[in-house]
Design a protein around this nucleic acid. Sequence first.
DNA 1: CTGAAACCTGACGTTGACGTCACAGGCAGA
DNA 2: TCTGCCTGTGACGTCAACGTCAGGTTTCAG
Lengths: 123, 123
Amino acid sequence: MRIGELATRTGVSVRALRYYEEQRLLAPERSPSGQRHYPDGAVDRVELIQQLYAAGLSSKSILELMPCVVSGEATPELLDRLAAERDRINRRITDLVSTRGRLESVISNATESWRTGRPCRPH
Amino acid sequence: MRIGELATRTGVSVRALRYYEEQRLLAPERSPSGQRHYPDGAVDRVELIQQLYAAGLSSKSILELMPCVVSGEATPELLDRLAAERDRINRRITDLVSTRGRLESVISNATESWRTGRPCRPH
DNA sequence: CTGAAACCTGACGTTGACGTCACAGGCAGA
DNA sequence: TCTGCCTGTGACGTCAACGTCAGGTTTCAG
């Protein structure tokens, strides 16, 4: 498929797909006239890339971990990197859970003080 | 306390503290010579700001939600905003959990293929 | 064959949360 | 008084992941 279809099917922009290629996260074939041609598997791959971006990984990290993720190749260093990223994600999760708890208590507190007519305990 | 002490006590840079003030997230008093003077509560406040930044909120969002968080003041719109941010955090958490699961399966798969001498199932 | 839509490369613009630098004034100990 | 660190205000730099625009080529439906 060509770049436009891949874009619509993944929901990412054409520009982003070209950027991913620039970062060597994708390597589509080229037609004789120079147009990019992607295999079907590119859809999953792009979604994986998006997921890793969303998890806070940089292009460089994704690039390093990509061979391991797609083909299972692994060196001890790659496994360490993977574990390190997993740990970072774990930390982010616990941080977010904590923040959510704080927001929820703020919400219930504020809702209560709203319902009962504005006496609000000072934090 | 002055800005340097607040910086060391919170772990954020002096520049960041001045930036927060520029964003009206802090409003320290000034000594006659113009130096900023923070109350003790500023430490907690800065840590709250950091926590909200880490949760993906922008300066603007933090500014809007701040009165509600610190003093419990709430309008229906503010409560909606708070709930919306909580929902966004929830989505981020579920996304991160999913990504963590994926990474973990990659890790166990790669570890296995490493232990057993490199036959790796094709994803 | 033709015109619109999709594609190409290259290059500059954007955004947020600061880093960094220059230059000047303020403060405490010796 | 001197010295050295802290603080002040600009103002420009950074970085990543794209957005956007210009100017030209390719593809395809009619």
